[in-house]
Every structure is written in C-alpha cells, then in structure tokens.
Design a protein around this nucleic acid. Structure first.
Length: 530
RNA sequence: GUCCCUGUAGCUCAGUGGAUAGAGCGCUUCCCUGCGGAGGAAGAGGCCAGAGGUUCAAAUCCUCUCAGGGACACCA
C-alpha cells in the first residue's frame, strides 16, 4: 500500500462514512506532499463553511492518524487540507522498495480475469501506424493491469477468412495479371511481391481466390507476428482464428443463443440482430440473404468463446475506422452477460511529410508501415513516443523529423537518468544496497524530492489501472528522470561522509528499482550504457 | 445530413470541478578542477477556439457556433 492510499484510509476515518473524495499529490508550489479537497464536498451537504469543516477534519486526523505518521496536517486557502508525511514514512517506503524490488508497485486492486484484445488487424497486408498505436497501448495496458492484480490474457483475433481475405486473393490474381484489376483490390507493393514469388501457386489456384487469399493471409500473418513480437516487442498470449470460430460451431451456438433470447428477426431475406435494444442506431445483419454469416456474427461467436473460457471482463482496443462498430459489439457483450466490456477507440495518427498529409491506405498501397517506423527509430522510441500521448488525441507524426526527433525524444532523457543512477552503483562496486542506513541523513530538498517521487510509482499504477490511462506511466517516467537529474547535479553519493553516502546509495538503488519496474511496465529496455 | 474524437505556449502534447494552467522541443542568458553534459540553473513566450449557461469554484460539466480529423455496407 502506497503513501497516498494510506492517507486516503486515514482521511476516510475522519469524514462521514461513504464520502467520496480524492487524495492527490500536492501542487508543486505547495510545501505539503499530498492534499485533499474533501471539505468542499462536505460543505455543500452540511451547508457550512468549508474552512470550518476542513479544520474539524484536520483536528480529527491529528487524533486518528498513527502516531508519527504526519509531520504536518494543515488547512490552507479556502478549505484544502494539506499533508506532509514524516521522514519515518518516507524511510519505510524507501525500505519497502529495496525489499520488494520487482514486486514494489504490484497491487491487489483488481481481482478480475481480463481478456485484452488488440491490434486484430486483417492479415491482408502490413500493419499501419494506427495498428501500432493500439499495439503499444494494449501491451502496456496488459502490463499495468497485471501489476494491479488482474489475470490478463492478450489476444489477437485474426480475420483469416471472409470477404477481406477473398478480396486479397483476387488482388493477388489481378497483380499476377490473371484477372482484370479493380478499384477495390489491395494495391500495395507487398501484393505484387507476393504474387511474383508464388507464380506457380496462383496459376494453380486461380479458380479458388478465397483459398488463395487464405494461403497468402497465412504469410502476411507471419510477417505481422515478426513485426509485432520480435521488432516491436509486443506480447500476445493467443492468436484466435476467425475460421476456427466457424469450424468449431461457435457461430451457430451464438446464433442459437441470440434466438433464444429473442433478439433475432428476419427482414428483406436477411437475418438481423436487434442491437437497437442496446442503444445502437440501427439493427445489424448477422446472416446475409445469400445465407452467409457476417463478420459481426463471427465476432459475436468469438465473444461467446471468450465468455465460455472464463473471462468476465473484456477490453477491446479498436482503431478509429472501427468506431462505428462499438455500439453493436457492446450490445453483444451485454447479451452474453460480460460483467465489464470496454471498447477503447484510439484516434488516428496523421503522418506528415514536409507539412503534407500522407494518407495511409492499405488498398491504395501508399503508406509507411508500423514495421518501417520501428526499423527507423527503434522500438523504444516508437513505443515511448506513442505512449506519451493519450489514445484519443489525434497525433501528428512528422516522418521527416522522426529520426532527428529520436535524438531529442524524452525516452533518451529517461533512460539516461537510469544509466547515471546505475553507473554510480557500478563505480562504487555496490551490488546490493544495505538497508541499514539513517534516513535522517537524506535531508536536502533533492533527497526528499526523490524519495517522494519514487513513492508515487504504486499510485501511478493504480491510477492507470483505474482509467486505462497508460500515458500516465511515460509522463511519470519523465518526471522521475527530471527529479533524478536534479538530484544528480546537486548531490554527491560517493565521497560524502559515510552516513550520508550509505543513505544515498540506498536512495539511488531504490531509484534503479523503480526505473526498472517502470521500464518493464511500459515495455522499453533498461540500458546499462548509451 | 447523423454520430464520435480533437481545438491549451512558435511546434508536439499533459492537465482526475479546486490553490499561481504545466512538460519536452525551439529561442535568450548562464553552469564542467567532481558519480558520464544525451545533464543542470534562470528567462521570454497563454483572452485554455468563440459565445452563453450550471457552480462557492470551469481549461475541465451543459448548450450553441466555428475549425480540423474520422465513422456512417447484407466489407472488415
């Protein structure tokens, strides 16, 4: 339990039961460490002056808090309650970091079993930058949720059959000159390349474009896997095949279930699901009038599979082009009885080249792939840069500046802080920092500031696990790095009087632990040197 | 036309209804006789797109307007 949650627990005892309130890190210009605005909320209900209430609460906390926990609790301004924790508490937290190491910042906050689905791009070509954005988000979010105590499965749902794959097959035939070209076919060089490399095969399969598409999709999926897992270091536990959803009978099963619950009707020769009952703006076809199940029905079968495999929570990360899909898939989740179903929609990345917008389109074949970007700037930079920005922000990425930008990217600033910290310990030949140090020797603003910053790590994990705001982690990384660089410039570790030196060694060792935990959660490397 | 997202420093972006709106880059001026200068310090730079409203309190919530991006298939 971090410092903030301990304060929250203490405040909770001093206010009426059930009061909802926040404890947050105090603003920088305040001397205090943490603050709460609870008095303002109570003032409304109790029709009293907030300052009066704040004073009452502060007094009560003075009595109820464990002895020696706070150095100061004071009312400020119109009714803020500011907390300064005592050095004992900081010492405890520092020791906790040194003891728990990798486990520091693992919480028992989430008890749920979560399936996290992301990327799930069709294997009809290389990944786009938007796919990559969702990929990094999913990977890091998976790490965060796991740290917060959830059991997480990361899944890539592969649309390895159906119209898009058929279209891919036809596109290859067209690229091979066997059938005439058409507007809707995939145009990228990769289609041509694949066709050129499989001349005999496409000749023999020219009557079966779907099978040909499936065959090519297998290759493209392999390329995707390499780009995602090897190059971008995005981990998946499971690749689920849409084709298998069909062959294992899940499509029929989910249809039966929908019918049983009376959400199915026939119209214009097609079969529909009544998604409007759950807020969708129109009902959706699940079986076409030709008698083919739609992708949507297969996806419902997939959701059913997930439910049957024991997941009560499903998080699905979609790209901006799938926004229109959210309402209907949420309808399915409700019918199937998921306890929680969240769809996160990431916004597009606009690729700029010399001030010009470059359109990304698989079909037109003009795009910079996710893999190319990772090759160009490296996995750490690409990941950190993408994860710094909230997913709903439309992001401008200037490709011409990508490489130059990488020199100035905050990821280097952050990793350099870690290298500096590590280097101090290496130079001093310290492998394990002693836990017998005197915390009162850590007395400068830089010492204290660093400890306070380190202690925020569990709070960041908690917040990110609550609102899925993974960019909190990269922001925190920059702040921690700044704090450490400040400390490094101002204070020495080696060569100080022994008591101070020992205490600072412990502090630096703890800093390394936090950086390592943070880096592994974000998914970037912890370099020994740069 | 309907729906979604966005509009905050020159640029790229943070900002959970609360205290003096922040960071990085860029710009100005400083700081190496020390653990790695890929650093540090100081500074300039903001009618938080606009207008109404709700509130003790709004960049944050509501309504409208404007601007940019995206989605609106018996494709995925």
């Amino acid at each position: 339990m971090g410092i903030r949650s301990r304060i929250t627990a203490i405040v909770a005892k001093a206010v009426p039961k059930g009061t909802v309130f926040d404890v947050r890190v105090a603003e920088e210009h305040q001397e205090a460490h943490y603050a709460t605005m609870v008095a303002f909320q109570l003032a409304k209900a109790e029709k009293k002056n907030p300052r009066e209430i704040a004073t009452k609460i502060a007094d009560s906390i003075g009595v109820k808090a464990p002895k020696g926990f706070f150095e100061k609790v004071e009312v400020a301004g119109p009714g803020f309650i500011n907390f300064s924790v005592s050095s004992n508490v900081l010492e405890e937290e520092l020791k906790r970091i040194l003891n728990e190491k990798k486990k520091y910042g693992t919480l028992k906050l989430l008890k749920k079993k979560v399936q996290l689905e992301f990327i799930s791009a069709n294997p009809t070509g290389p990944l786009t930058l938007a796919n990559g954005r969702g990929g990094f988000l999913g990977d890091a979010l998976g790490n965060v949720l796991a740290r917060a105590g959830a059991k997480v499965e990361r899944e890539y749902y592969v649309n390895d059959t159906g119209n898009q794959v058929l279209n891919l097959g036809k596109s290859i035939l067209a690229a091979g000159g066997i059938i005439p070209d058409s507007e809707e076919y995939y145009k990228g060089d990769y289609v041509k390349e694949w066709a050129d490399g499989h001349r005999a095969l496409i000749e023999s399969m020219k009557g079966k474009p779907l099978s040909l598409g499936e065959r090519a999709a297998k290759d493209f999926l392999r390329f995707i896997k390499t780009a995602v897992q090897k190059k971008a270091r995005i981990k998946f536990d499971r690749f689920t095949s849409e084709k298998q959803i069909h062959t294992t009978g899940l499509v029929k099963k989910v249809l039966t279930l929908f019918k049983k619950k009376n959400f199915v009707f026939e119209e214009d020769g097609a079969t529909w699901l009544k998604t409007t009952a759950f807020g969708d703006d129109k009902d959706r076809v699940i079986i076409t009038k030709e008698g083919n199940p739609t992708y949507f029905l297969a996806d419902a079968g997939h959701y059913l599979q997930t439910k049957q495999r024991g997941f009560d929570t499903k998080i699905n990360i979609l790209g901006p082009d799938h926004y229109g899909y959210v309402a209907r898939i949420q309808a399915v989740a409700k019918i199937l009885g998921f306890k929680e179903s969240t769809v996160l929609v990431t916004q597009a990345i606009r690729l700029m080249e010399q001030g010009e917008l470059v359109k990304m389109s698989k079909r037109k074949g003009k795009f910079v792939t996710f893999e190319e970007l990772v090759d160009e700037v490296g996995a750490d930079v690409a990941r950190f840069f993408f994860l710094m920005i909230a997913p709903e922000t439309h992001m401008d990425f200037d490709l011409a500046l990508a490489k130059e930008r990488s020199q100035k990217n905050p990821v280097y600033y952050v990793q350099y802080a870690y290298v500096r910290a590590k280097n101090i310990l290496t130079k001093m030949k310290i492998t394990t920092a002693s836990k017998n140090f005197d915390v009162t020797k850590l007395s400068t603003v830089h010492d204290i500031g660093l400890i306070r910053e380190l202690a925020r790590f569990p709070e960041i994990i908690e917040d990110a696990a609550r609102d899925y705001g993974v960019h909190r982690l990269t922001r925190y990384a920059s702040e921690l790095a700044k704090t450490f660089h400040n400390f490094y410039e101002a204070e020495r570790v080696a060569g100080e009087e022994k008591g101070i030196s020992d205490a600072r060694v412990a502090l630096v060792a703890a800093t390394c632990i936090i950086f390592e935990n943070l880096f592994s959660t974000i998914g970037i490397s912890a370099p020994k040197k740069m």
